[in-house]
Structure formats: structure tokens, C-alpha cells
Design a protein around this nucleic acid. Sequence first.
DNA 1: TTGAACTTTCAGTATTTAATGAAAACATGA
DNA 2: TCATGTTTTCATTAAATACTGAAAGTTCAA
Lengths: 173, 173
Amino acid sequence: MSAALPNWEKARDEFVAQWGALGSHWGINRTMAQIHALLMTAPEPMHTDEIMERLRVSRGNANTNLRELVGWGLIRVVLKKGERREYFEAEKDVWQMFITIAKERKRRELDPALMVLRSCAEQTQSEKTGAGLDFHRQMRELQEFVEFGMKVSDTVASMKHASALQWAMRLLG
Amino acid sequence: MSAALPNWEKARDEFVAQWGALGSHWGINRTMAQIHALLMTAPEPMHTDEIMERLRVSRGNANTNLRELVGWGLIRVVLKKGERREYFEAEKDVWQMFITIAKERKRRELDPALMVLRSCAEQTQSEKTGAGLDFHRQMRELQEFVEFGMKVSDTVASMKHASALQWAMRLLG
DNA sequence: TTGAACTTTCAGTATTTAATGAAAACATGA
DNA sequence: TCATGTTTTCATTAAATACTGAAAGTTCAA
């Protein structure tokens, strides 16, 4: 059996478990959220077998979700000298994490929505009255709102943490 | 059979179908997203049977998702004089929709996450060195970040569309 | 090359989530 | 009260998604 865990590891286990549960109820699969939580709180990079053991998941599952997290840009592969296997470490800076997630969600969620809205608005260009016109306007409004939101998000994502903070403080002020 | 659809209804059907597909890949079930899209573009309030027919879904499914949308605050029940059954209409103002969704997601996604972070930070208060301290700091940072985000979101949600726009424009410069 | 260490794939299975449809519950006016 | 129109519930079924484990693939040092 494994050695007794230091005290903080209890809290860590809670974090990993709960984060997994939360993740699944906002569209991220449980294992992926758990691996991310685990690596986010790992003092050192971890390899696949450590992760498998700690979370009690299969190799296939661990591998798939590690690749997925790499794809999101939330973790990266680290190679250790003289070792063949891959280690993984998470981005730990909260601001950087936020930016990464915001960009990725924009790409996955907003970009395709925008395509739909544009297409629907375009198809109804020529509606000049009544319900057809209302529909056209609704699509345009949604489209413009999403485009605007994307611009704001791009701007924020390009800011340093400190200046974003300052800017937000002025708002809250 | 039903009468031929006016031209704009073609675009509407596309909107409904695609919105459903999108919804399901960001954590909202397909029928719910479709009903919302349908009502958002409805010239008049609709009743359950119209929705069932238009989307080809069962009564149970329609009912469940209508209630869910009412729960989100995205649609409301409308009663017509001299009619017994309930009609539904969606909030159409984009800014208002945005605020409603933001509030609800905060309640469902951020609030529980915050609980976890607070609990984990608290449990490791007394860690003074090494990995335990790092963990504690990580939890604190996450907690503070989420709390800050929530404040910003509350502030924005309390603004009128016009002033939010103005404020955002200043950011975009 | 060979084979050991490691990674990826994928068919099969398990789990979770959503949808159906019929029965039960509820409301209303006669 | 009863008959009728309407909504809700829920056991069952269907569909989507996640996970496993073993086999195939890859890499690299000897």
C-alpha cells in the first residue's frame, strides 16, 4: 500500500473529487476535470501511471484526457533528462488559465454560433415587413451582441493581469 | 398537412435546428435549446401542442423543458383571455437575456465551485511550508479570482445596456 | 535488429442523460 | 357532481457519452 498522505493531500483529494463533479455539470467530463485539478495542485510534473493510480482510471481514459487537456492548452508535456516517458504539468497561473479557457471556449462555442446567426441574418436580408423583418432584426441583434462580446473578450485576453485588474477595479469602484 | 411556410420560416428552422445542436455541445440539452430558439423567434406566444408539432417531440419532453426554461427565467407563461391552456413567450431583448443567463450560470456553476475552494483553503490554513503552503496559496488564488469575477459580473448585470456598452467601448478604445 | 518501455487506438461495456407515452392529477364549466 | 381539456409525473426505452483493457503501434538503446 501507499504511504500515508500528508495532511494537505486530504484537502487536495477533496478538491480533485469535487472539481470532477462540478466539471461534469458544466460540460467537461469528470476525468478530464479531475486530471486538471490534480495537475494544477501537483508540486511536480506527473506521468500517466501516477495519474492512473491516484484517480483509479484506466490507461486509455488517462491518455485520452491528457491529450485533450494538452489540446486545450491547459497542461503541457515535460520531458525529464534520461527518462523516456512523458510527464505533464499544468499552467498554474490563474489569470493565464482564465485566458486559455476563454479563448478555447470562444473558438468552440461562440465561433460556430456566429456562423449560424450570420447565415440566418443573411438569408432574410430582403424581408421588409412583419414577422420576417422581426426575425431578421433578432438575428442581427444576436449577431452583433456576440461579435461585441468577442471583441471585449479578445481585448481582456490581451491584457496583463495587473492592467485588467486595474480596469475592473475602476468599474467596481 | 400544414400550410407552406413563409420564406423567413426556412431560416427560422435552420436557426432552431442549429441552436439545438450548439446547445448540446455546451451543456444544454437539445430540446431545451430548440424550444428557446423557437420562442425567441416566435411572433406570438406558443402553446405546448404547437411546440410539440413544430419540433416533433413528445408532450413529456416539451413540458419538462418548458418548465426548465421558465426556471431559468428565459421564458414566461402567458395566459390568454377565455383560454384555458398556457402559452409561452421568450424574453427577446438580447441584453436582458444575457443578464439572465449570466446570473443563472453564476448561481449554478460559480457558487458551488466557490464552496469547494473556500473549504480547501480553510482546511490548509495552517500549512506554513513547502507543498502544503503552495496548495493553500493555489486555492486562495482561485478563490479570490472567482470572487472577483463574480463581483464584476454582478456589476455588469446591474447596468443598463447603454452604460455597459459605453463602458465597454472605452475599453476597446 | 531486437526487445523493453512507453503511448495510442479501439471494440466492447458501463454509465449517464434524454425522450417517450400513457396514466394520474388537476382545473373548469355545465 | 361529472365530463372535458390540460398539465404533470414517471416507468420504460433509446441515445449519447465515458471508460476499460488488451492489442497494436512507436521509440530508442543496446
